[in-house]
Design a binder for these strands. Structure first.
Lengths: 225, 225, 225, 225
DNA sequence: CATGAATGAGGGTTCATTCAT
DNA sequence: TATGAATGAACCCTCATTCAT
C-alpha cells in the first residue's frame, strides 16, 4: 500500500537524493517485513514478487537476500512478525474482570469488533492464513493454536462465569459447540470485511445484534433451561 | 534420458489411427472446467499451472486454448461454472414452507451445515473467493450478490415469518445486523473447515449449539423484548 | 563454435525463414547435447550459460528444459554422451593381433596419437574431466574406470606379450609403475594440446621419440636385465 | 534473524577502539592472494566467489578491492604469486652438477616427483592452468614459458650431457620430441594425482619405472644406436 | 479437433562491485 | 584501512501462450 516511489523516472528537476541509506539491520529488517506482509497479503504467496517487496521497501531486489535467504523464508518470517500475542489484551481483561458476566461479554465483543475494524496488520495475517494454510501447514497450526483455541478458551471462560453467577442458563454448559458459535459472528464479520470491504455487512450493526442475540440466547430464561 | 516421447499422434500419411477421444465442445468444456476448478482451488490463481489443468483433464496443454483464450478467462469461466443456484434449494424450501418458523429455521440450518460438510465443489468455490477476491473484483461481487445477499434474504424472511407468527420477539426486527449474525456461524464453520480440516470445531456440535442459541435468543421472552 | 545466427536483427530483406522447426526428440536431444558439450568444454560447468547452449543449438533457452530438467542434469547427460567405448578399437586390435609385440606397441601408440590429434569430442571430454573432476566425483570415477584402467590394461597386455616372446626384457615385469609410464607421454601430449594448442610440443615428434624410447628401454638388452 | 552485525568499526568519534588488525599492504596482500589461490584452485575462475576469498582471508569483502581492482585482476595476481622460480632448484642443481649424467637424471627425476607429491601450491597452480588456460591466454603462455620450456631445457641439457659423456646413445640427439617424452610421465603423474587423488597410479612406482625406462632407453646400447 | 515442441517474458536468486560509515 | 550494507546485472529456471504437424 505504501508503493514506494519508483526509481524509474529520472525526473531531472529534483536533485536526486536517491542516495543509498545504509540502515542497521535492526531498522532494515522490519522495513522489509512490513513490505513483505503487504505484498503477500495482497497477492498471496505465489503471486507475490520479490521485486515488488523490494520496491515497496524502497530497496534493491538483491538486498532482501542479505536478510532472508529465500522467498519461502521471508514468508515464514512475515508470518512470525504478525504473530504477536493477539489475545493478550482479551485474556488480561478476562482474568482481572470484576463485574457481571454479561458486562464481560459485552466488553470482549466490543474488543473483538474493534480489532476487526482497526487492526490493519491482523487483517493481513488473517488473509495470509486463509490463502496459504493449505500450502503451509504451519500456518493452519498457528491459527489453531494461537487464535482459535485461545478465542474458544475465552468464550468458554465467559460461559462458565455466567453460568456460575446464574446469569446464563446452565444448559449452555451441555452444548460443546457453543463456544465456537459464540465467537463465529466476529469471524464471519472479518471474512466479509476481507472479501467485500465497504460492501460487507455493517460491523457496528453486527456487533449490536451479536451481543443482543447472545444475551437473549444465553439468558437464564432460555428454551433449553 | 531418452524420453521416448511424441510420434504417437497422426502422422499425416496413415488416416488417423489412434487420435485421442475427439469430443464435441459440449463434452470437453466441462471436463476442462472441472480440472481448472480443482487446480485453481488448490493452488490459487497465480499458483495454478495450465499444464496441470490439462493434465488433470487428461488432455494436451494446447487444447485448453481451443476452448478458453487465456488463463484469466479460464479462471472466470471456472467461477461461473461453480455459480450454480446455490440457494435454489433453500429458497424453494422457504417459499413452500408450511410449518412453524422454528421448524423452518431448523430445516434451513440443517441444510446449510449439510452443504458445508458435503459439497466439494462449493468448498472449492469458497476457497477461490477468499483467495482471489481482492485480485478479481468480479469474484467479490459474485459472492455478494449470489451468496451473501441471498443468504441474508433467507434469514430475513425467516425472521419476519417468526415475528409475524409470534414465535420470535418483535424487537428482532429492529436489529439490522441480525440476519448476518444468524448466518455467521455457518460461514465461520466453513472457514474453519477450509483452514483446519479435521482439526476444525466439530460441525455437528456447532449446528446443535447454533440452532439452540438462535431459538433461545430469538424466542418471544428475550431481553430486548 | 557453431554460434547460431542470432535472431536479433530483423533485417527486413530476407523473408525470415526463421520459422520454428519442430524436430522429434530423437533429433533435438543430440543437437542440444552437442551444443552443451561444446559450451561446457569451453567454459567449464560454472562458466557455461544455458543461454549459450541454446544459442549454439539454435533454439530458445526454455526448450532445453523440455529435454533436461536442469543444468546439472544436462551436464551429466553431456558426459554420458561422450562416454562411448573409447578403447574398443585398441582392445580389438590387441586381442586379434598376430605379429610381434614391438609391432603391436607401434600400432597402439600410433592409434593413441591419432586419437589425440583428431578426436574433437574426446578432447572436450578430457577437458571436462580435468576441469570438473573435483566437483563431480562421478567424472573422476568415469575417468579411472573407463580410461585409465583400460589403458593400463592394454599396456600391461603388451608388456606381457613382449616379455613372453622374448622381445622385452623380463625385468620389466617387476616394475609395477611401468604401464603408467608407458602410456604417460600420450597423456601429457594431450594435456599440452589442450593447454597450448599449436604451441604444444609437436605430436608427431613425440610419437616418434615415444616409440623409440620404449623400444630401446624395453628391449632385451636393457640395464635392469 | 536478528543478525547482530556491523557497528563494531570506527565510528568517527571514538579514536579507533577495536579496528581489526590494520596491516600494511605488504602483509595484507599475501594473505589475500593465498586465499584467492585456494578458492580459484578449488572452484575454478567462474565458480570462485569473492566473498569466499574474503572469508578465507578473514577479512571483509570490500577490503579485497583496496588491493585488487577486480576479480579478473585478483586472478592474474594469484597466478603471478604462484609463479615463483619453480625450476630454480632444478636449474641450480643442473649447472653445478659434477657426477654422471645418469646420476643427474636420477636426481632431477627425484626432485620432480617430490614436488608433485608435496607442493600444495604448485598443484593449485597446475589446476588453474588446466582449468582456465583456454579462457586466459596469459595462463597458457605462462605455462609454456615458465614451466614447459624450462623443463624441456633441463631435459635437453641432461640429454646433451649424457651424450657428450658417452652415457647416452648419440642417436637420442636426433629425436626432437625426446625431451618432451622424457618429462611426460611426471606431467601425467601430476594430472592423475589431481584428478584421482589416492586412486591415481602410485607415484613412487612410477618414479622407479620412469627412471628405469629412461636409463635403459637412453643407454649407449639402444636400438637406434 | 488434438498434440506437444517451441518460444519468450519474467521471476527467484547470486554475486561482483560500490560506497556510506 | 576496514566494514558490510546496498546495488544491479546476469543467471537459472518456469510457464502462459503459440503453432507446425
Amino acid at each position: 500500500m505504501t508503493e514506494a516511489a519508483g526509481r524509474d523516472a529520472t525526473d531531472g528537476a529534483t536533485p536526486r537524493q536517491e542516495t543509498r541509506s545504509r540502515l542497521p539491520p535492526e531498522a532494515r529488517m522490519p522495513q522489509i517485513l512490513e513490505a513483505a506482509i503487504e505484498e503477500f497479503a495482497e497477492r498471496g504467496y505465489a503471486g507475490a514478487r520479490m521485486a515488488a517487496v523490494a520496491s515497496r521497501a524502497g530497496i534493491a531486489k538483491g538486498l532482501i537476500y542479505h536478510y532472508f535467504p529465500s522467498k519461502a523464508e521471508l514468508f515464514q518470517a512475515s508470518i512470525a512478525a504478525c504473530a504477536r500475542p493477539i489475545f493478550e489484551d482479551a485474556e488480561r481483561r478476562l482474568s482481572g474482570f470484576q463485574g457481571s458476566a454479561r458486562q464481560l461479554l459485552a466488553d470482549l465483543i466490543g474488543l473483538a469488533y474493534a480489532r476487526i475494524r482497526e487492526e490493519q496488520r491482523e487483517r493481513a495475517l488473517f488473509r495470509l492464513i486463509l490463502t496459504e494454510a493449505e500450502r503451509v501447514p504451519a500456518l493452519a497450526e498457528f491459527y489453531r493454536r494461537e487464535i482459535l483455541e485461545r478465542a474458544l478458551g475465552i468464550a468458554q471462560a465467559v460461559l462458565r462465569a455466567g453460568i456460575a453467577s446464574g446469569e446464563f442458563r446452565p444448559a449452555a454448559a451441555a452444548l460443546p459447540g457453543l463456544a465456537a458459535v459464540i465467537m463465529a459472528p466476529a469471524v464471519a464479520g472479518s471474512v466479509w470485511q476481507m472479501i467485500l470491504g465497504d460492501a460487507a455487512p455493517d460491523l457496528a450493526a453486527m456487533q449490536a445484534a451479536h451481543l443482543d442475540l447472545l444475551l437473549a440466547g444465553l439468558g437464564a430464561g432460555g428454551p433449553a433451561g
